[in-house]
Amino acid sequence: KKIKIKIKVYNPETKEVLELEIEVSEEEAEELAKKLAEELEKKGYKIEEVEI
């Protein structure tokens, strides 16, 4: 079964909002969402919402 992940991120420095969407297997979904959120935060983005 495929799971659709939508991530909306906001960069306070540039006032930019990015929306990302990807489909992955159920097993990958939670781990991938967690890794993406961590990487984006390292780059200065503030995570507003992660929906699985």
Rank of each mutant, 00 (worst) to 15 (best):
I5A: 01
K43M: 15
V17T: 05
E19T: 09
P12K: 07
Y45M: 04
E19F: 12
V24W: 02
K35Q: 09
K43C: 14
L36G: 01
E31S: 10
A37Y: 02
E28N: 09
E48G: 02
Y45W: 03
P12T: 08
V24H: 03
E49M: 13
E27Q: 08
E23Y: 15
L36Q: 02
L18R: 02
E21L: 15
A33V: 06
K35C: 15
E23T: 07
K34F: 01
P12N: 08
L36A: 05
K35R: 14
E38Y: 07
E38L: 11
I3T: 15
K42C: 14
N11Q: 08
E16F: 12
A37R: 06
E27V: 05
I22F: 13
V17A: 14
E38I: 06
L32G: 05
E41N: 10
I3Y: 15
E38N: 11
L32M: 11
L20H: 15
E49S: 13
E39L: 08
I7G: 00
E51T: 12
E21W: 13
E48I: 13
V9C: 05
E19C: 14
K15L: 07
K6P: 00
E51N: 10
I7Y: 12
K43A: 10
K43S: 06
V9R: 01
E21N: 10
A37I: 10
L20C: 11
K4M: 08
K34E: 06
L36T: 05
K8I: 11
E23F: 14
Y10S: 14
E26Y: 11
E30T: 08
E49G: 07
K1V: 11
K42F: 06
V50N: 03
E23K: 05
K6Q: 05
E48Q: 04
T14Q: 03
E16Y: 08
E23D: 09
V50D: 01
V17D: 05
G44D: 01
E28T: 09
E49D: 08
E28H: 12
K42G: 11
E30I: 15
K6N: 13
A33L: 04
E13G: 09
E16V: 10
K43L: 04
E31H: 09
L18Q: 03
V24R: 02
K42Q: 10
I3Q: 07
E48F: 09
I7C: 03
Y45S: 01
K15I: 08
L40Q: 02
E28I: 10
A37C: 09
E21Y: 05
E39D: 08
E41G: 09
E38D: 09
A29Y: 03
I5W: 02
Y10R: 10
K34S: 04
K8Q: 04
I7T: 00
K46F: 12
I7P: 00
I22N: 05
K2D: 04
L18A: 09
K35H: 10
K34C: 14
E30N: 14
L18K: 07
G44I: 00
L18E: 05
P12D: 08
E13P: 07
E16M: 06
A29V: 07
K1Y: 09
L20M: 13
I3L: 14
V50G: 01
K46E: 08
A37F: 08
L36N: 01
I5H: 00
K8R: 15
L40C: 09
L40A: 04
A29D: 01
P12G: 11
E39T: 04
A29S: 14
E23A: 08
E49L: 15
E23N: 06
E51R: 08
K43Y: 05
I3R: 12
E13N: 10
K34W: 03
K2W: 15
I22P: 00
L32R: 12
I5K: 00
E23C: 15
K6C: 11
E21A: 13
L20T: 04
K1T: 05
K46W: 11
V17W: 08
Y10P: 00
L40G: 01
V17E: 10
G44P: 00
N11K: 14
E31Y: 08
E48K: 07
A29K: 04
K15F: 14
T14C: 06
I52A: 02
K46C: 15
E41W: 04
E19A: 09
L18M: 12
K8T: 12
E19V: 10
L32A: 10
E27A: 15
K46Y: 10
I3M: 15
I52R: 01
E39N: 04
I22A: 15
K42W: 07
E39V: 06
K42P: 00
E23V: 12
L36E: 01
